[in-house]
Amino acid sequence: IRCIGVSNRDFVEGMSGGTWVDVVLEHGGCVTVMAQDKPTVDIELVTTTVSNMAEVRSYCYEASISDMASDSRCPTQGEAYLDKQSDTQYVCKRTLVDRGWGNGCGLFGKGSLVTCAKFTCSKKMTGKSIQPENLEYRIMLSVHGSQHSGMIVNDTGYETDENRAKVEVTPNSPRAEATLGGFGSLGLDCEPRTGLDFSDLYYLTMNNKHWLVHKEWFHDIPLPWHAGADTGTPHWNNKEALVEFKDAHAKRQTVVVLGSQEGAVHTALAGALEAEMDGAKGKLFSGHLKCRLKMDKLRLKGVSYSLCTAAFTFTKVPAETLHGTVTVEVQYAGTDGPCKIPVQMAVDMQTLTPVGRLITANPVITESTENSKMMLELDPPFGDSYIVIGVGDKKITHHWHRSGSTIGKAFEATVRGAKRMAVLGDTAWDFGSVGGVFNSLGKGIHQIFGAAFKSLFGGMSWFSQILIGTLLVWLGLNTKNGSISLTCLALGGVMIFLSTAVSA
């Protein structure tokens, strides 16, 4: 259960009878995928790494000078000259100064003066180019299975845990398959586009800190620079940016070097996208990844198990997540596992009318040892309800109150669905055939309105939902006002479609 501690969480529900669903994975976010007769899966884009970055340009932001020398000439005696002028490691300046009897010249006039100092770069920052084909995306998957609280967001041991898996995709191999043991396998067909235009970005490294910066900004930095990788004795261009020549006297000129420019660069980098280094690879934390999940090989585990009949206890007080759902960790005293956990939410304890829904599909106890633990997640209705676990006299209950409203949740879900469709863009549509167009249209309606429909009408039977949709269509056909007619027709059509397409 990876997503319960992530604030940016998206719930995606598969269409009834569908074998695939489109998701948008982004750094700092987590996606929970639910479908009829399929286990619930949490998917998170953990890291995006980039390798084989080529150094484009380096800037010196802290330097020192040494070996200063000057040469001067009297008027009419030609130009002052130093051998160091031809050495690229030196920074030199030529000027004219007033000369006369007082400073060793027989004539009054302008004399030539040249001053040089050896330039040494102490600290530099480097910009590297990123090729999209060198990106690698690491995705962690977790099935809502027989897990306890100690396994949440624990990325170790996934090789031997059938509840978890790690997959890596690249532009050259965008397809992967996550093996989930008894739950089958989940196929991923990803489109490795981060949403960032790397043709316009460089990877900047300064003092063990890293950013993504725009090329134009990078090339306009007014500091000494050299092109390409460091060859040991780089040729620094624009050395004068960190060196200041003071007022010249008759035979000498003082040279000083400016202080470190790291603070000024940090100020200019305010708002830039931060990154990290992992050995020789860069780690990015921006952008998104679009994936199509193929769920035809994914299956529920323990459908044929019998119900657990022994007593359950709450190991922890049920807690609310950031998303309005409830996490419950229970301990089973029996030894008759594997068995299914009898769990439901009810409005009252007399009729036990089921409300809400299970995020953890078909929760089971897989071990036959005593005191096995299991964590599950529920989506309670707004208002008061009861969490009921167990059967008969051994069942345990917990009162729950959820604040908020169904309308607010439906609106929030619609906005999130619209954002998801905007990110998917043209990849969500198939114009290759008439059937493809209608299929894409259905998927689009489901992406945007599916979660809201589930919130508003999830407790009704599909037949009642179709009746309401048919009534809206009838009202649309018999209303003389054009805008009201079109609105009723659209709402009725969407409702009829979703009542037959969205899983219960």
Score class of each variant (00 low, 15 high):
Ile1Val: 15
Cys3Met: 09
Ser7Thr: 13
Asn8Leu: 00
Val12Pro: 01
Val12Met: 13
Ser16Ile: 01
Gly17Arg: 02
Gly18Ile: 01
Thr19Tyr: 07
Thr19Gln: 06
Val21Met: 09
Asp22Tyr: 12
Gly29Thr: 15
Cys30Asp: 05
Val31Lys: 05
Met34Thr: 12
Ala35Phe: 07
Thr40Cys: 10
Asp42Asn: 14
Val46Gln: 05
Val50Trp: 07
Ser58Trp: 03
Glu62Asn: 10
Ala63Glu: 05
Ser66Phe: 07
Asp67Ser: 13
Met68Ser: 13
Asp71Met: 12
Gln89Ile: 03
Thr95Cys: 11
Thr95His: 08
Gly102Leu: 01
Gly104His: 06
Ser122Gly: 09
Ser122Glu: 13
Ser122Arg: 12
Lys124Gly: 01
Gly127Asn: 04
Ile130Arg: 01
Ile130Tyr: 08
Glu133Cys: 09
Leu135Ile: 01
Ile139Leu: 15
His144Gly: 06
Ser146Val: 00
His148Cys: 14
His148Phe: 14
Met151Thr: 07
Ile152Val: 06
Val153Leu: 15
Val153Lys: 05
Asp155Tyr: 12
Tyr158Ile: 02
Tyr158Trp: 08
Asn163Arg: 00
Asn163Gly: 14
Ala165Asn: 01
Lys166His: 01
Lys166Ile: 08
Glu168Leu: 00
Thr170Phe: 06
Asn172Glu: 02
Ser173Trp: 11
Ser173Asn: 06
Ala176Tyr: 09
Phe183Cys: 12
Gly187Ala: 09
Arg193Lys: 15
Phe198Gln: 05
Tyr203Glu: 11
Leu204Ile: 07
Leu204His: 07
Met206Asp: 07
Asn207Leu: 09
His214Ser: 02
Lys215Leu: 00
Asp220Gln: 10
Pro222Thr: 12
Pro224Thr: 05
Pro224Ser: 13
Trp225Cys: 06
Asp230Glu: 14
Thr231Ser: 15
Thr233Ser: 07
Pro234Tyr: 05
Trp236Val: 01
Trp236Ile: 04
Glu244Pro: 00
Lys251His: 04
Lys251Cys: 04
Gln253Cys: 11
Gln261Val: 11
Gly271Tyr: 11
Ala272Thr: 13
Glu274Phe: 10
Gly279Asn: 14
Leu284Ile: 10
Phe285Met: 09
Gly287Ser: 15
His288Asn: 02
Lys290Trp: 10
Lys290Val: 02
Cys291Glu: 05
Leu293Tyr: 03
Lys294Ile: 05
Asp296Asn: 15
Ser304Pro: 03
Leu307Pro: 13
Leu307Thr: 09
Cys308Phe: 11
Thr313Ile: 12
Val317Met: 07
Thr321Ser: 07
His323Asp: 09
Gly324Val: 04
Thr325Pro: 03
Thr327Trp: 15
Thr327Ile: 10
Val328Cys: 03
Gln331Thr: 09
Gly334Pro: 05
Gly334Ser: 01
Gly337Phe: 13
Cys339Tyr: 13
Met349Lys: 03
Met349Leu: 02
Gln350Pro: 11
Thr353Met: 12
Arg357Ser: 06
Ile359Pro: 07
Thr360Leu: 01
Asn362Ile: 09
Thr366Ile: 05
Glu367Ile: 01
Met375Arg: 00
Asp379Cys: 03
Gly383Gln: 08
Asp384Ser: 03
Val388Phe: 12
Val388Arg: 00
Val391Arg: 15
Gly392Ser: 11
Asp393Gln: 01
Asp393Thr: 04
Lys394Asn: 12
Lys394Glu: 13
Ser403Val: 11
Gly404Glu: 03
Arg416Ser: 09
Arg416Gln: 04
Ala418Leu: 02
Ala418Ile: 12
Lys419Val: 10
Arg420Trp: 09
Gly425Asp: 09
Gly425Thr: 06
Gly425Glu: 11
Phe431Glu: 09
Phe438Thr: 00
Ser440Gln: 08
Gly442Val: 14
Lys443Trp: 08
Ile445Asn: 11
Gln447Ile: 14
Ala451Gly: 03
Lys454Ser: 10
Lys454Arg: 15
Phe463Val: 15
Gln465Thr: 09
Ile468His: 10
Val473Asp: 02
Gly476Glu: 07
Thr479Pro: 00
Gly482Arg: 12
Ser485Tyr: 00
Val494Asn: 10
Val494Gln: 12
Phe497Pro: 08
Leu498Ile: 01
Ser499Arg: 02
Thr500Leu: 01
Ala501Glu: 08
Ala504Pro: 07
